[in-house]
Simulated scan of single mutants.
Amino acid sequence: MSPTSSTATSLTVASNGGPVSTKGSLQRLFSHVKIENLAAGLSGGVVSTLVLHPLDLVKIRFAVSDGLALRPKYAGMFHCMRSIWQQEGLRGLYQGVTPNIWGAGASWGLYFFFYNAIKAYTKEGRQAELSPTEHMLSAAQAGAMTLCITNPIWVTKTRLVLQYNADPSTKQYKGMVDALVKIYRQEGVPGLYRGFVPGLFGTSHGALQFMAYEELKREYNKYRKMQSDAKLNPLEYITMAALSKIFAVATTYPYQVVRARLQDQHNKYNGVLDVIGRTWRNEGPLGFYKGMVPNLIRVTPACCITFVVYENVSRFLFGQ
């Protein structure tokens, strides 16, 4: 069953098995919405982005590296970072940071916001813990809802990160707002939603990550003979977050390459299948894993920072 159909079913059947109105179901769903989850998730996303944006920039540049002559050639991750630093300084390593902060902050904030509301709604009236499948479906639904709101921000971030020339007069976009306006004027709404389809597939990444994170916490607390939602120390949160992130990245990384190439202004593709076909023909299966090493180096600590900040800020806001 798809996440969408699962949500629709849960919104039209009461916990006692009888039918209820959609309006009543939505009211019950919104009763579980907590602004504290939004604030805590946003805090985690912003902090991790400020610390680790340069690695995100390197990951994207490797992901779109398809042999075009107009692109700089990098021998490796550190060569890439050193070249950007020498040519453009610290500002070069933080190209695209504004939409990244907006995107990461909004994405993590909305993700935790929707995820906790859906999870609480699903558990309403039950004593039993949610199953791994229910955790996964809750995360997938939250991811799809978040992407619908934030995809234009991610397109602008990718476009800004892929401006290679250090001379500002030759750059196509002057900043986040300028990029949003120009993309809309030149490409319309479809331009702002490039990469949306592989992004939807990417909700499986978040779903797998949150499922693994929740299950690791539950099993660990069961081992400690504690309640499943018992507070952990920062090192324990870091361990759970790192293991769940590595699992999710290793499983779903190719979609990120496809998505970045669709959003790249230097090349034109006729959709997802065209990207997959050309990447496979020209670069083989390894082409779908370009940039995965810098991505792992970036997202693992980013995830750890985000989850530690989220868990501690949310407990502070909820007075726990």
Results as ranks from 00 to 15, higher is better:
1 M>P: 13
3 P>L: 04
3 P>C: 05
6 S>L: 09
6 S>I: 03
7 T>M: 15
9 T>A: 13
12 T>F: 05
17 G>P: 01
29 L>E: 06
34 K>P: 10
35 I>P: 03
40 A>M: 10
42 L>S: 05
42 L>Q: 02
46 V>C: 15
48 S>L: 11
54 P>E: 00
62 F>G: 00
63 A>G: 07
64 V>M: 07
73 K>Y: 13
74 Y>E: 00
74 Y>G: 03
76 G>T: 02
77 M>K: 00
82 R>S: 05
86 Q>P: 00
88 E>G: 03
91 R>V: 04
95 Q>A: 10
99 P>T: 09
101 I>G: 08
101 I>R: 05
104 A>M: 10
106 A>T: 13
107 S>G: 15
109 G>E: 06
111 Y>D: 04
114 F>W: 13
114 F>R: 09
115 Y>K: 12
119 K>Q: 14
128 A>W: 03
132 P>S: 14
133 T>F: 11
134 E>D: 12
134 E>W: 07
136 M>N: 10
139 A>F: 12
142 A>G: 07
143 G>Y: 10
152 P>S: 08
154 W>P: 06
158 T>V: 09
159 R>Y: 02
160 L>H: 03
161 V>C: 03
162 L>P: 01
163 Q>D: 03
168 P>I: 13
169 S>A: 11
170 T>G: 13
177 V>S: 06
177 V>F: 14
178 D>C: 08
178 D>W: 00
178 D>N: 11
180 L>V: 06
182 K>V: 10
184 Y>C: 15
184 Y>I: 10
185 R>H: 12
186 Q>T: 14
187 E>L: 05
191 G>W: 01
195 G>M: 00
196 F>G: 04
196 F>A: 07
197 V>N: 01
198 P>L: 02
199 G>N: 09
204 S>T: 15
207 A>F: 04
207 A>E: 04
213 Y>P: 00
216 L>R: 12
217 K>M: 15
219 E>T: 09
222 K>F: 03
224 R>F: 11
230 A>L: 08
231 K>C: 05
237 Y>W: 14
238 I>G: 12
244 S>N: 00
251 T>V: 11
253 Y>V: 00
256 Q>S: 11
258 V>C: 11
258 V>H: 01
259 R>Y: 05
261 R>D: 08
262 L>R: 02
262 L>I: 06
263 Q>R: 09
265 Q>F: 02
266 H>A: 04
270 N>H: 11
271 G>L: 02
277 G>R: 15
278 R>P: 00
279 T>P: 00
282 N>Y: 05
293 V>K: 00
293 V>G: 00
295 N>L: 02
296 L>A: 15
297 I>T: 06
305 I>S: 07
308 V>C: 12
311 E>T: 04
314 S>W: 06
314 S>H: 12
315 R>A: 15
318 F>V: 14
318 F>K: 15
320 Q>Y: 09
